[in-house]
Design a protein around this nucleic acid. Structure first.
Length: 815
DNA sequence: GCGAATTGTCATTCG
DNA sequence: GCCGAATGACAATTC
């Protein structure tokens, strides 16, 4: 079945071609639409074939209006198409394609050899040549006659496509080696079939490379043969047409050395047609890479050369190796990621690189003619033509890829844009507004080899590179950048005014991390006064230790000191020693002893109101060593000297109330007097028959004691409140510093992003080309970003008007 | 001896 | 009205 179909279609194609050659217009597309790509595309050759969208659309119609490639109105058709493309391109961001001419100029014989050997340009050339010949025999004759000097678009296209034109072959005689001999026709056919299947399935590029290599090798071989035989292109093309005759043997044509027919089995025996078809399919399948693949070797070599001389973004872009990219979109993503990663590192290099690229681009443009002499020779014009032709194919792919990457909706425009290239006159017709960002490889090179930082900067007026990138920022980005910078500056000023410079903020943060300068450990301070109270109360009531606080430490908070009361009573009764309370209290001032008491950690100073009163614990063993603090008035007491060492010592440190109570022979301790509940206290008083002075003293002691504890608690709460407030202030300051720091970081990131956008803008704009292939003036044109994500190239005046309108609207809204 | 800090006390208020 | 807590004010004490 496959063969039957193949032969059938091939026969039709051949027949159609023959008819077309003799001037009979036959539209086979209508018959072969479903099975084969439109014949028109085949006839149109590489140009149309390079368009991926065409591959999908199969019909290269102009808004439903189809035109036969050989129609007399072809010029009109192309003109109309070009105009339409221009109109369409207005609402799409088009990446200008880099010009291949530079590579041709710089390529070294070695590189050329490698390129020729690896790339599949020869195939393309065959196609292009065939097409052109078919379309305009005159052109073909011109080529043949002009030979090297004439660098028509077709030639350029062929060259650019990597096709090896006879002239090229002549120009570059020994460069191409034929690798084709190894493969038989069946193998090639099988490969081609598989390749086409893969294409339908989104074939990998490797297959294409392989076939392209074969084609290339064949083309090279043919070129060599041509060199030897001096055969003109028309002949070769005819040979291609007549390949069917050669197919059975499938050997290389003696004259042209074309083994091409063998390579195009799927389409049929037709060499040229099959080649074109293959190319078309390949191009459609590999919008990015086909051209680049073909040209990559040269490109890479060129890259090296150019990079050494002057790293130019423009050159770098085209040079980008597309081959390694199996999937364009994925590659783009990866490229973008890489770009983003690299951008920061290369930000500083953008300007210099842009200039270098500009220079190189100029060299390419001007020198391209000279350098391209090998391929097209002739004047710079012609070389440029050829360059365009070369770049065309690449450009198309590039456009597609780039377009897909950033502007999905624009994909359809590329085919249309591409058609102008097919102008039979051989003049290269770049799309009016085209973002020909070189091919994917270009992107790679741009981002990888060269700086991406230059992207989005408006291109220099007449240069494809970013000569004036730095100072010719487009309005949108420059304005944004300025605003951001101003904002940042203002923020910085504000921060400075507030005394929060970045360094200060960080310093403050460090300071805040540390403990407050207060003697009290803020970290241990209760969260709130209430907490402190609760902690105190809990501590007082929680354990026996709380009993030690019964007099002062637990002050007021502990109501359950009753457990200790019996002992206290006994102690008081058995021998009231007020000294102990004070002494023990002082002994508790030892921080080590309070370490286990969290609630006491808050107080590191000399305040004793939290300390337990030793009077409740007449543990004499604790007395001696630690008391010495109380002096002064206690020492002055005369009777203390009479006391024995413990009593004397205790008496020294006894409080006034304690001394009074002792002097008044109060039978119980002050602690009990103070801390006992009212009922118990009343009971206690009732148990003992006390005189009025004693009762009054006891009540005063209780009152003062309670008031003292209350005062201590009050002070403590007050202190805690202060500490909490201080802590809150610290927290707020730290938060402020952190926020300020984050703000700085955000501003910095915004600035970096704006720089990146600026560079991208410059890069894109620098690659824009008008219909004449000239770069747009950054002073006259600017990229305008639509709300829907589209990017348009429009005059600055118009862009300014549009930008004013929204502002007015906003103002109106505000009003 | 002075000043600051600490502590105790008083008076008052409030719940 | 009493009690206890809280608090301001003052004084005494300590360093």
């Amino acid at each position: 079945m496959l063969y039957l179909k193949k032969y059938f279609t091939e026969g039709l194609i051949q027949f159609t071609i023959l008819l077309s050659l003799i001037g009979v217009r036959v539209d086979v597309d209508s018959y072969l639409n479903n099975q084969l790509p439109p014949l028109r595309e085949i006839i149109l050759g590489p140009t149309s074939a390079y368009t991926q969208t065409q591959f999908h659309n199969l019909r290269n119609t102009l808004d439903g209006y189809g035109i036969h490639p050989k129609s007399v109105d072809l010029d009109h058709f192309f003109a109309t198409r070009r105009l339409l493309n221009q109109v369409r391109s207005l609402d799409h961001l088009q990446v200008p394609s880099t010009e291949v001419s530079a590579w041709l100029v710089h390529r070294d014989p070695e590189t050329v050899v490698s390129a020729a050997g690896q790339s599949s340009p020869s195939i393309t050339l065959d196609n292009g040549g065939g097409l052109e010949d078919v379309n305009s025999p005159e052109a073909s004759t011109m080529r043949g006659g002009s030979g090297t000097s004439e660098s028509t678009y077709s030639q350029g296209g062929e060259n650019s496509l990597g096709a090896v034109a006879p002239e090229d072959s002549q120009e570059q005689p020994g460069e191409r080696d034929n690798n084709n001999d190894d493969l038989t026709k069946e193998d090639i056919d099988l490969i081609d079939i598989l390749w086409r299947q893969d294409i339908d399935l989104g074939a990998g590029r490797e297959v294409f490379n392989y076939s392209s290599r074969q084609k290339e090798s064949e083309a090279e071989k043919r070129n060599e043969d041509e060199k030897d035989g001096g055969e003109e292109r028309p002949e070769s093309w005819r040979n291609g047409l007549n390949l069917e005759e050669d197919q059975p043997p499938a050997p290389v044509d003696g004259e042209t050395g074309e083994s091409i027919p063998e390579q195009l089995p799927s389409l049929g025996t037709q060499t040229s047609l099959s080649l074109q078809e293959c190319l078309r399919l390949l191009e459609a399948t590999f919008p990015f890479g086909e051209e680049s693949e073909l040209q990559n070797p040269v490109v890479t070599s060129e890259l090296r050369d150019t990079s050494e001389e002057a790293p130019s973004t423009s050159q770098g872009l085209p040079l980008l190796p597309v081959r390694p990219q199996p999937e364009p979109q994925l590659d783009l993503e990866q490229q973008w990621q890489d770009i983003m990663a690299i951008m920061e590192l290369q930000d500083m290099e953008v300007n210099s690189t842009a200039e270098g690229s500009l220079d190189s681009s100029h060299a390419t443009d001007s020198g391209g003619g000279t350098g391209s002499s090998s391929s097209s020779g002739g004047t710079p014009e012609s070389s440029t033509m050829g360059e365009f032709g070369l770049s065309r194919s690449t450009l198309i792919n590039q456009d597609v890829s780039l377009h897909q990457a950033s502007l999905p909706s624009c994909s359809q425009d590329f085919p249309t844009l591409f058609n102008p290239d097919l102008d039979p006159n051989g003049t290269l017709r770049p799309a009016l507004l085209r973002l020909s960002s070189s091919n994917s490889s270009n992107i790679n090179s741009t981002y990888g080899a060269t700086n991406l930082t230059g992207l989005f900067a408006p291109p220099p007026l007449n240069s494809t590179t970013n000569l004036t990138s730095t100072h010719t920022l487009t309005d949108p980005f420059s304005s944004l950048l300025e605003e951001s910078m101003l904002d940042e500056i203002s923020l910085l000023d504000l921060a400075m005014e507030e005394g929060f410079s970045q360094a200060q903020a960080s310093q403050l943060e460090d300071e805040l991390d540390s403990d407050s300068g207060l003697s009290l450990d803020s970290s241990h301070s209760p969260a709130s006064p209430s907490n402190s109270e609760t902690s105190c109360s809990s501590a007082a009531s929680s354990s026996s230790t709380s009993a030690t606080f019964s007099e002062e430490g637990a002050v007021g908070y502990s109501t359950d000191s009753e457990a200790a009361s019996p002992e206290m009573e006994e102690g008081a009764v058995g021998g009231y020693q007020p000294e102990y309370s004070k002494l023990c209290r002082m002994s508790y001032q030892d921080p080590s002893q309070f370490g286990s008491l969290p609630e006491l950690d808050n107080v590191n100073h000399n305040h004793t109101y939290n300390l337990p009163l030793a009077s409740s614990y007449p543990d004499h063993s604790q007395l001696p060593g630690s008391c010495g603090k109380k002096t002064g008035r206690d020492k002055s007491l005369p009777h203390q000297s009479k006391l024995q060492p413990p009593r004397e010592f205790l008496d020294k440190h006894a409080s006034r109330d304690e001394r009074r109570a002792r002097s008044m022979k109060i039978p119980f301790s002050n602690e009990k007097i103070i801390n006992l509940p009212v009922e118990e206290f009343n009971e206690l008083l009732a148990k003992h028959h006390l005189s009025e002075p004693q009762l009054a003293l006891i009540r005063d002691i209780r009152r003062r004691g309670k008031n003292k504890m209350a005062a201590q608690n009050c002070r403590k709460r007050k202190l805690d409140t202060i500490l909490n407030l201080e802590h809150g202030v610290h927290d707020l300051r730290r938060d402020k510093a952190r926020l300020l720091k984050e703000k700085m970081e955000f501003l910095r990131s915004i600035r970096q992003m704006k720089q990146k956008v600026q560079s991208l803008y410059q890069e894109v704009f620098s690659q824009l080309r008008d219909e004449h292939g000239r770069p747009y003036s950054a002073s006259d044109y600017a990229l305008q970003y639509g709300p829907d994500g589209s990017v348009l190239v429009m005059p600055r005046s118009l862009a300014a008007e549009q930008s004013r309108k929204p502002d007015k609207k906003q103002k109106d809204k505000k009003k």
